[in-house]
Amino acid sequence: MTTLRRILTVVGKDLRGELRTKEAMSSTVVFALLVLLVFNFGFEPGTRDIELVGAGVLWSSILFAAVLAMNRLLLNEREGGGLEGLMLSPLSRADLYLAKTITLLCFLAAASSVTLILFVVLYNVSLGVRIFPLLAVVLAGVLGLAAMGTTFATIAVRTRTREVMLPLLLIPLAVPLLIACVEVTSALIAARDLADEGHWLRLLLVFDVVFLALGYATYPAILEE
């Protein structure tokens, strides 16, 4: 079996497990919905406020729901001894990082797409075809979150404080990603020209590439017991 096949086998196993219980997916989407509900009390519906704060609302719900999901997925793994089992497989530990990141990406992409649709409906955002570039931004954003999240969720669930540790480590480090995502999302919601947002798109790309590479390089040092 080639390395790619092995990685995809692990991803398939993880996604099948989640499809059977739907535990992490359902709790994540409901949580995102609750964040959308709470933010709604902050401003008057049907005003131009949405152009100003909409992007922040969307990304807050994606971020907090993502933190919840990462903890859930890696905590299940921890409690079932899943990663320890996989460490005995012929997959290298760096490749294990790729497998876990792809799983997390699939998961976050699905949950965030649902969140995006809920956001558009509940906040009455008129996006039209701009929903497709926005979906692409959401995917690029959750790729960066997954790249960092795999590393820090693996660390967090092995600490004494467990799930409390993940947001403390992840959120400050994810600040550039969040700023870039919020800026591009605002431009799309307000129907501004995307050509002026080129630097943010580049930053998003750089962030994704840098932290995928660093995650790949450092994961073996985390899984060393």
Partner: peptide, 23 residues
Amino acid sequence: RYCAVLSIIGFADIPIIHYSVRW
């Protein structure tokens, strides 16, 4: 090991944070 990984990822993030916040 955990702290070493965090500090390496954190240090790589410093220039990215710097530019993102400046823009």
